[in-house]
Structures are given as C-alpha cells and as structure tokens.
Simulated assay, not measured.
Amino acid sequence: MKNSALIIVDYSNDFVADNGKLTCGLPGQQIENYIIERIEAYNNKQANIFFLMDLHYEENTYHPENKLFPPHNIIDTTGRELYGKVNDIYQNILFNDHVHYLDKTRYDSFCGTPLDIMLRERNITHLEIVGVCTDICVLHTAITAYNLGYSISISHKGVASFNPTGHQWALDHFKNSLGAEVE
C-alpha cells in the first residue's frame, strides 16, 4: 500500500440512501461494508485515503448536470454527507494526515481538484477506486487516472450504480480498455 491510495467517490446520502435525490439505492448500500473494510485496511497502515465528494449549489443554472439530473449533493444539505457507517468511520479518522476530503464539481474526481498534485506529492502510483456511480463518476475518474499514468484496481464489491447495464459495461471497460485490475 506504500504507493497506493484509496479513492472513495461520491458515497453520499443523495447517491446511496433510500430517500437520496439521485440514489442508486440498494446496490449502493450493499457495498458499504466492503468500503469500510478498505478504509480500515488503508487506515491501519496509515496509507492515503481520499474522499471525493460531488458539490452542487441550489439553482445553479450554469452547471451542465442540471440538464441531465435532478438537484443533488447541494452544499450544506444532509444529502451531501457521507452515507451511513462510512460517515461514522470518516468522523473517527478525519484528522489523520493520511486522510483527505476534496470537493469536486464534475464527474471526474481530477477535474478542478488538486487530486493529481496531492497524489504525486505522496509518490502514489496506484489507485484503488470505490464508490458510486460505476458508470458515471467512478468511470470518469478511472479514465483520467489511466490517462495520467496511474495503475488502477476496482472491485465489483466496491462500486455500484442505479443502471445495472451501465455498471456491467463500466466494469468491462475498466478491465479491457483501461487495463485495470478488476475483481
């Protein structure tokens, strides 16, 4: 894990909870324990953990997602908080130097964030990516990671989507087009 970082993408109430604004529901809830296992494994070794969270503003007519999806992950709402036990574990580790939380305003966790710079400062060469949605934000994050030269691993136990067809397509794409280790 020395040169590896765990990337947790958009695991928020709005994307996972039953009453979330853009929820993948049960599939997202079913990956919670796996995500917790991975957080604990990285935390126990004091390896880098990055929480990347979608950030939107109420009535922002300029954001391109507004034409595609209902308002979600609005700043200062409970919908934007980490979901369930992942939030609990985050609250217990958030002050550790190896734990990072970054806001993102696009699908891609690298776009407009300091993620790449922070990874390179820490000599990270491998990314383990978990979170939601497999075929949207996880996919766009993985594509940029690949294009930036990172090796990638993604477990089917750690990603979910509201679109089963898109989920399976993305898993195949990670393996066959991005050379990711997919289990």
Rank of each mutant, 00 (worst) to 15 (best):
T61I: 10
Y62A: 14
P64G: 05
F69A: 06
P70L: 15
P70C: 09
P70M: 14
P70W: 12
P71S: 14
H72F: 13
N73I: 02
N73S: 11
N73G: 02
N73V: 06
I74R: 07
D76S: 12
T77D: 07
R80I: 04
E81G: 02
Y83C: 03
G84M: 15
G84K: 14
K85D: 12
Y90R: 12
Y90N: 10
Q91W: 02
I93T: 00
I93P: 01
L94G: 00
L94Q: 13
L94V: 04
F95E: 12
F95D: 13
N96R: 13
N96S: 12
N96Y: 00
D97I: 03
H98Q: 12
H98S: 13
H100P: 03
L102N: 10
D103L: 03
T105S: 08
Y107S: 11
Y107V: 00
D108T: 06
D108P: 02
S109N: 04
F110K: 02
C111R: 09
G112E: 05
D116A: 07
I117H: 08
M118Q: 10
E121F: 06
R122L: 05
R122V: 01
N123C: 06
N123W: 04
N123S: 11
N123H: 12
N123T: 07
I124W: 05
T125E: 08
H126M: 09
I129F: 03
V130T: 15
V130N: 10
V132T: 15
V132G: 09
V132D: 08
V132Y: 09
C133Y: 11
C133I: 10
T134G: 05
D135L: 09
C137R: 01
T141A: 10
T141Y: 02
